[in-house]
Amino acid sequence: MSDYENAIEIKGITKHYDGFTLDNISFNVPKGSIMGFIGQNGAGKSTTINTILNIIKADSGEVKIFGLDNCKHENEIKQDIAAVFDELPFHEQLNAKSLDKILKHIFKQWDSNKFYSYLERFQLPVKKKFGQFSKGMKMKLQIAAALSHNAKLLIMDEATTGLDPVVRNEILDIFLEYLQDEEHSILMSSHITSDLEKIADSVTFIDKGKLLISGYKDEILESHGVVKCSKSDFNNIEKGDYISARIGDYGVEVMVSDKSVFARKYSGLVIDHTTLEEIMLFYVNREKKEWS
């Protein structure tokens, strides 16, 4: 298991539900990196993550974790995976001490000293019941538990949603620490793109069950840009040369996917840098082409 290039390899994952289809999703999470999995609510992020964790079975496709098939080597793989959910998945009557006693018999590499040191670092009480924890405390507790059994892969499903900026920042710093060792990888799904811009190495966009983009974050940000122009200039731009355009009262914002090609073709127009949030916004409206 130590000899693998990608922590996660997903090929052609398809899953049908009534009113929703996850359609042929493929991407890799390289070892030692953090991938941001971005999409709006209902895009298919949770379904994809549930497929990776084998909580649900895909209709077709293949998932490999650490180079091993996630169905055939499920128990072996799960010793080295830590999942962090959007809500605390522990009973409210439990406290940190009892959780330690439970988890040390579930994970072979559980380290109680590490767990208690994280609790101390996050200033979490040991004997207080989880029902009395705030949302931020619950998330920190989950992360403390996730980081305490030497997991090689951290899978986070909207874990920072609903947290205040201070706590989010603290958590992101912890992830950067976690990744210092090149053996660890993170797959982080979120619709808070500002978090991912700070720490992600690569991003994957998903919308309505379809993969839009997947690649290195810097390359995506470098290749994409926003052109702000007048309506008359916009009319000169061919439909195939842009992703979508936001029509305002005083001008038009146009998202382009290849700045260099666009700049050569439309030399008079200025292309500004963009953010992941803007990219997500424009891609989500790509079918409309022009929107306001």
């Binding site: 899953k15 049908h16 539900y17 009534d18 009113g19 929703f20 609510n41 209902g42 895009a43 298919g44 992020k45 949770s46 379904t47 549930n50 649900i56 079975k57 895909a58 209709d59 959007d86 499903d157 909207e158």
Partner: peptide, 30 residues
């Protein structure tokens, strides 16, 4: 999982609503 679209016909059962079609994962509902 494991059922194809063709297999997922609406089941008629004595318990009526107990055989509703399955929904997408929480967070992925439209």
């Amino acid at each position: 999982a494991g059922q194809t679209l063709e297999d997922k016909k609406e089941k008629k059962s004595f318990f009526g609503s107990l055989s509703k079609p399955k929904k997408a994962a929480k967070g992925d509902e439209n």
